[in-house]
Design a protein around this nucleic acid. Structure first.
Length: 298
DNA sequence: TGGAAGCCTGGTGT
DNA sequence: AACACCAGGCTTC
C-alpha cells in the first residue's frame, strides 16, 4: 500500500474518501475525540496523539505527540476500519428500504476498530448515561490514571488494566464513576490476570467471545456487543438499546413483544455478519431524526 | 424465567 | 436560575 506523505508529519489514509469523521469518531463508538468535522478531531490511539482531519482525497492526519508508531498510516487506517468490508455491506444494503436511504445520506459512517480494553471500560461507563457524560468519565480515567504523552489537556495514554485495578473502587468513585466503579475494577482484574484474554478474542468466534466478556460481573449483553462490535471484529454483534429496539419494530416490523435479548437474536438472524453496520446506520438515523434531520431532507 | 427496583451522577428541558 | 426528571445498563430479588 503506497503511503502518501503530505507534509513532514502529515499523512493521507488510502481508500478513505467519503469517511465522515463526525459520525464515526464522535457518534457513540469512541469517546476520546474532541473537535469538529471541519477542523478535525484530536485524540489518542495507543501511545500517540493524533489530529485526524478531512483532506483533499479523503482522511488525513498528523501525529502531534507521543511515541509515533512504525507505520502511522497503517495504524490510523486500521483504527478507522478501512480494512473491513464496508463496500460489500454497501452493495448488499444499498436498496434496503430502511437502511438504503440512510446509507445514501450518511455513507461516511464507519465502524471503528478500537483497543478492546479501553473500549470495554468506556462501555461499562455507558450504563444509564449519555455521550457527553461517557466522555467526561472516560476522560477522567485517562487523565487521572494514565501517562501524559502530550501538551494538550487530554493528551494521556489510557491506563493499563493493572493500573486501573490498583487504583481501586474508591479512587474510581472519587472520579465520579458511581455504581460503575466496582464493575470497572472487576474488569481490570479479569484482564490483568488473564482470566479474560481480551486481546485474543479477536480470533475467537462471536459466541465464545461474547460469553468470555459476559463472565465479567458488570458486563451484560449490550456492553458485550458494543465491545465485540467496535474493537473485536465481530460483524454479528448487534447492541440493542431502547432506541434500536424501537427502530426494529417501527421500520422492520419486528414483533413488539420481544425483549432486548430476543430483539438482538432476531436482528442477528436477519442481518448475519452485516449486523453491526446495520446497527450503526439504524442508530445514527435514530439520533439524527431525534434532532429533526431526516435522510430524505439531507 | 421474566420483570421490576435500585444504583451514582450529570445532562437536559422547563 | 434553579430544579425536577431521567438516562445508549447491570445485578439482585
Amino acid at each position: 500500500m503506497a503511503q502518501l506523505v503530505v507534509g513532514s508529519n502529515s499523512y493521507a489514509v488510502p481508500d478513505s474518501r467519503g469517511i465522515d469523521l463526525g459520525s464515526t469518531l464522535d457518534g457513540g463508538q469512541a469517546f476520546r475525540w474532541y473537535g469538529n468535522p471541519e477542523a478535525g478531531y484530536r485524540g489518542v490511539i495507543g501511545d500517540a496523539v493524533y489530529l485526524i482531519f478531512p483532506g483533499g482525497t479523503g482522511v488525513e492526519f498528523e501525529v502531534l505527540a507521543g511515541a509515533k508508531p512504525e507505520d502511522p498510516v497503517a495504524t490510523v487506517s486500521d483504527y478507522l476500519g478501512c480494512n473491513s468490508d464496508f463496500a460489500g455491506f454497501m452493495e448488499r444494503y444499498r436498496s434496503d428500504e430502511v437502511i438504503g436511504p440512510a446509507l445514501m445520506a450518511w455513507a461516511g459512517l464507519r465502524v471503528l476498530r478500537q483497543d478492546p480494553w479501553e473500549n470495554l471500560v468506556a462501555f461499562i461507563t455507558s450504563a444509564t448515561s449519555n455521550v457527553p457524560r461517557i466522555k467526561l468519565n472516560v476522560g477522567s480515567i485517562a487523565c487521572e490514571l494514565g501517562n501524559r504523552i502530550g501538551d494538550g489537556d487530554r493528551d494521556f495514554q489510557f491506563p493499563s488494566p493493572a493500573t486501573v485495578r490498583d487504583a481501586g473502587e474508591d479512587r474510581l468513585r472519587e472520579l465520579r464513576l458511581g455504581f460503575r466503579a466496582p464493575y470497572i475494577v472487576e474488569a481490570a482484574e479479569c484482564v490483568a490476570d488473564g482470566r479474560v484474554p481480551i486481546y485474543e478474542l479477536r480470533e475467537a468466534g462471536y459466541v465464545e467471545a461474547r460469553a468470555a466478556l459476559m463472565a465479567i460481573k458488570g458486563i451484560g449483553e449490550k456492553v458485550a456487543d458494543c465491545v465485540l462490535a467496535f474493537s473485536l471484529d465481530k460483524g454479528e454483534a448487534f447492541p440493542v438499546d431502547r432506541w434500536i429496539k424501537r427502530a426494529l419494530v417501527q421500520w422492520y416490523g419486528m414483533p413488539e413483544n420481544k425483549n432486548k435479548s430476543a430483539a438482538a437474536d432476531w436482528a442477528r438472524d436477519r442481518f448475519g455478519s452485516d449486523a453491526v453496520y446495520v446497527n450503526q446506520y439504524l442508530f445514527h438515523r435514530q439520533r439524527m431524526e431525534g434532532r429533526g434531520i431526516t435522510s430524505a431532507a439531507k
